[in-house]
Design a protein around this nucleic acid. Structure first.
Lengths: 244, 244
DNA sequence: CGGCGCCTTGAGGCTGATCAAGGAACGTGG
DNA sequence: CCACGTTCCTTGATCAGCCTCAAGGCGCCG
């Protein structure tokens, strides 16, 4: 799995000035290694820190008292994790590692100082949060109003696009590295039904599978049947304030 | 319906300095009146403006190509509407008026200037966006992983808390002013089934209804059965940068 | 070799959708 | 002031998508 740091991610959206880049790089000074399955932040933990995921795959989720789990978001290198606690004393969600991971902690006050000295980066933070919000609404619409098959298809496309964001070498064949149970917990389905939907997508010749590898045989058709939109492209941040 | 302006809303979360308050008030200089049912922003419209809703109730939603609608969020006075287009050239969602409304337009560049001159308010904007994101994840979890009855209960609680945010006079009896079809489009149910769930909640003596008015007879129990959490309280913004 | 995690497939059941019909409330025009 | 259309609510009957329960297989690791 490729590495991707925060300045790289920010650089995907804005041309950072040397000053800005240096300030972003000063946010993190150490790396934490996580084992597969490890929990980084637990729901209702004190929310005093964020992290940047630099290597590996994580998920954020909530557990309901009926025992089921809703996966909110899959996290890939370059993502800020724990930002949901930005406004709260306690984290509203749990963050766990799906694979071995590396994360770099950022103290909350350091983010405050960054926003203060580089308001443009504060605006970028708002914009990236909005993107996350829109992605969340897309999944809400999928879970609320589309068929099981469409939800699974949309999730595959989303994972593909997100993995490509930090590894441009990824094409229509990729290894999501998530179990069918995780796909189910993200799409509001059971693992059993996810399995059947994957089989149907395969029978429809929309995808192919071997081992853990997926191939999107007809990405355009897949996007059509699932109403999928890539929210990480088509951004417009030119109107943000000038860099300091 | 009470009026609530942007500076009032910001003031709920931070003690604004006179300077900050003046800057926020300068963002808007005119009011637009909308008729019941009017569409303010259409999906894929150019996203050049935001609005502050000062009076009335609106919704943001997306339409899927299977013809169904997913309501993302009910909007109340003091809410910024159209922020989903913050990062995009085109609005990802439609905004429409449920009742007669008043909105105050804000040009995108003005928000940029505000963030530049008052980075603390930029940070507040990020925080409020995070709150919206968390509310969206709550509904995602509800739609993905809870029963129809729980979803309807959670939505009633959410609407109650949101209405109370700008009108502290609202207690356990209130008039949401939404149809059962709208409740269904927000919770991923049909209007028919929403009706049955409301009847069940009534039979369980959890709510009472007469005309369009709802009374939450046992709000605590309602919150328990629906895993509802009020995301508008318990915020912690003390760590934001100092005001300029 | 045994255990475990994950995938796969079948059978039957339940939740919520669909289809249908009627009623109440309200606004509008004659 | 009444007739009518429209919107919204309500309830019943039937249907289907997805869940639950169950069992077996494969691959990997200790």
């Amino acid at each position: 799995m490729l590495e991707c740091r925060l300045a790289d991610r920010f650089g995907d959206f804005l041309d950072l000035t040397p000053d800005e880049r240096a300030a972003v790089e000063r946010l993190t000074d150490r790396d934490l290694r996580l084992r597969r399955g490890a929990t980084l932040i637990r729901e209702n933990d004190r929310a005093a820190e964020f992290y940047v995921l630099s290597r590996g795959t994580m998920i954020s989720y909530v557990l309901l008292d009926n025992g089921s789990r809703q996966i909110i978001r899959f996290l890939f290198p370059g993502d800020i994790v724990g930002m949901a606690g930005f406004a709260y004393q306690q984290s509203p969600e749990t963050i766990a590692a799906l694979t071995e991971c590396e994360v770099a902690p950022i103290d909350r006050p350091l983010i405050g100082a960054l926003i203060d000295q580089h308001p443009r980066l504060g605006a970028l933070l708002t914009a990236l949060t909005q993107v996350e919000r829109v992605v969340c609404t897309d999944r809400l619409a999928a879970v609320g109003r589309t068929s099981a098959k469409a939800r699974v298809a949309a999730l595959l496309l989303e994972i593909r696009d997100r993995m490509r964001q930090c590894d441009s070498g990824i094409g229509d064949t990729f290894s999501p590295g998530v179990t069918q149970e995780e796909i189910g917990d993200a799409t509001g389905l059971t693992a059993v039904h996810v399995n059947r939907m994957l089989r149907q997508l395969e029978d429809d010749a929309l995808i192919a599978r071997e081992g853990g590898r997926f191939t999107l045989l007809e990405p355009a058709k897949l996007a059509r049947v699932s109403s999928y939109v890539d929210r990480y492209s088509g951004l417009d941040l030119n109107w943000l304030p000038r860099p300091r």
